[in-house]
Computed example of a mutant assay.
Amino acid sequence: MNQNLSSYRIFYTVANTGNISKAAKELYISQPAISKSIQKLEEGVGCKLFSRSSRGVVLTDEGKLLYDHVSSAFETLTLGEEKLKRSIELGVGHLKIGVSATLCKYLLLPYLQEFIRQNPHVSISITCQSTNETLELLEDNKIDIGLVGKPDNLKNIHFDFLEEIEDIFVCTKDYLRNLRARGVHKDQILTNSTLMLLDKNNMTRQYIDDYLSDNQIQVKESIDISSMDLLIDFARIGVGVACVIKSFVKEDLASGALVEIPLGIPIHKREVGFAYKTTTKPSKTLGEFIRFYKNF
């Protein structure tokens, strides 16, 4: 396009009004400026666009052809402006969140339920990945915010603490009773049971592996499981001892469906919270979500 948008705006207005004087008043510019702009546009396209009449100006055949396209373009722009204004008024936006399946179910959903109630026109995209993968997506600007375990390296990351989580080992009373019947003492449970852990790509698994290694606990038999829900379900039916987050099984512990394995050295609690990049200015929608969860 050899002409600038203002030239086509003038052309479009003159064609609609059919009068240079009326167009000048509508555009708040002088009549000579309009005449000069039309002349320059005609030179640029290589043909006459208007012919004078007793009532003002009318489009030539070439002008009508150009007007059809210019009119369509300005109508599209006007529609875009109206949609943008309406979306701003309604609070329309898009929020991309990264979170592990476990934290999504047990921690994120309550926040989302209330946020969506307050912001019904915001669309939400959830990417369920491990914490490590969520941080990678955040670094690559593929998500706006992540709900993660606090990373060791906070470079370019702002972390808002939500709560502490505590990892524990649990099993059924029957499973524990059978271990004791075989002469397994309480300080030998982890080394003599089928230990059920999240898969090795999960940050929780890496944290537990470090705990086992630091305390010289040798695991003889283990099962890698893809989700916390399955870990809890397998523990409930007596498959083995599962490493779970304590707050996620509080009802099972209260009812006696599961019991906590006593540990000589407890596993340190971990921090979880929302993380977003400090090197990128938050969008309006992300800013709204940050303000929301800080006051939740």
Rank of each mutant, 00 (worst) to 15 (best):
M1E: 12
L5H: 06
S6T: 05
R9G: 01
I10D: 00
F11M: 00
V14R: 01
N19T: 02
K22E: 11
A23H: 05
A24M: 08
S37V: 11
S37I: 09
Q39T: 15
E42C: 01
E42Y: 03
G46Q: 15
K48T: 10
L49A: 02
S51I: 04
L66R: 06
D68I: 14
H69Q: 15
S71T: 05
L79C: 06
E81W: 04
L84I: 12
S87M: 08
H94S: 09
I97A: 00
V99C: 08
S100P: 10
T102Y: 05
L103A: 11
L109A: 07
Y111I: 11
L112Q: 03
Q113D: 14
F115A: 10
I116D: 11
N119T: 09
N119W: 02
N119I: 08
H121P: 12
S123D: 14
I126C: 07
T127L: 15
T127H: 13
E133A: 14
P151I: 01
N153Q: 07
K155Q: 10
E166Q: 15
I168F: 02
K173F: 00
R177Q: 08
N178T: 14
L179W: 00
A181K: 11
H185N: 07
H185Q: 07
Q188T: 01
Q188M: 07
I189C: 03
S193I: 01
L197N: 03
D210Q: 13
D210V: 08
N215E: 04
N215Y: 06
Q218M: 14
V219H: 00
S222V: 10
D224Q: 12
I225T: 15
S227I: 05
M228S: 11
M228R: 01
D229F: 10
L231T: 00
I237L: 04
A242W: 00
A242Q: 01
I245G: 03
S247G: 09
V249L: 01
K250D: 15
D252I: 02
A254E: 06
G256C: 12
L258H: 09
K269T: 06
K277F: 04
P282Q: 00
P282V: 03
T285P: 01
E288C: 09
E288R: 12
I290S: 03
R291P: 07
N295G: 05
F296I: 05
